[in-house]
Amino acid sequence: MSSIAEKVVAGDIRTVARLIRDIDDGMPEVREVLKELYPHTGNAYIIGITGSPGVGKSTLVDQMVGHLRQRDKTVGVLAVDPTSPFSGGAILGDRVRMQRHSMDPGVFIRSLATRGHFGGLTQSTRSAIDVLDAMGKDYVLVETVGVGQDEVDVVRSAHTTVIVVIPGMGDDIQAIKAGILEVGDIFLINKSDREGADKTVSDLRLMIEMDQKKYEEGGWKPPILKVEAVFDKGIDEFLEAVDQHAAYLAKTEGGLDFRGNRNKVREELREMVKARLLEEALDRLTKSGEFDRAVELIVEKKIDPYTACEDLVLPVSKQ
């Protein structure tokens, strides 16, 4: 093993932190390290937490970390915040709610920006999860704002996907229905200290029950739980639901091993191949000058973009 992989497996914080940066920055060297780390992965339980901005995801993650630590479990956290489309910069503020754990050697917290990932946010986050898994964390919690498809895909690659809503989010629940209702394994009504929590529970229940097909096939029926993250209420019940979901998953193909489930492997590999092919092909076309030549030809009206695209892609794909 390379010294980097060795240090990761030994839990060296600085090495892990730097490796995640290299993954995020798309440094090609990390591929070799990830290959070496792979045999050390597959032990962590991954929980994805998503929901609209401000519903209390970070506060919830903070409490989850607290409760998991009481159970003597080690925890890694990946908190994803949006990159500004204007500047490319980002304010990563999730950590504010979790800082009380920063001195705990059993906890590793990392903030990530969505950037405009070429290989997909899902891919780089997936690799970062592998790193935290290989460093020996029992749980990896991933927080994303559930707005874009990318962010939703990220939490979907977890063992348990948690959707957080708050009371009175009538319209938002409609929005959830369109996008992420299908991917929720557990629904939490956070801020249940506020009015309307019970109504939100029944609204959600109705919507989930319309998803009949899933249950007829003996699928998992997502529980809807009320919590108050900031007051540390309902967290144990929530973590019990996570345990139950884990027990359910253990009976499905591959059990808790992602890379033992054909559908999941197919999906992951497809994404990886797609990103790599695109990268290699574009790289070659750019370096050879063919790409820029095509741009010129289109601008000079000598060729249409459809033909140009074909001329570029067909020779590459035939190789």
Binding site: I13, S87, G89, L92, R97, Q99, F108, I109, R110
Partner: peptide, 29 residues
């Protein structure tokens, strides 16, 4: 201002000890 300049900015919030700041800075690289 840092974000608008294109930097990724981790904000820790108030009341941090120097130890907490340094540990967070290392984890965040």
């Amino acid at each position: 201002a840092y974000r608008d300049a294109g930097f990724e900015v981790v904000y820790t919030g108030l009341h941090q000890t120097p130890e907490e700041i340094v540990e967070a800075a290392i984890q965040e690289d």
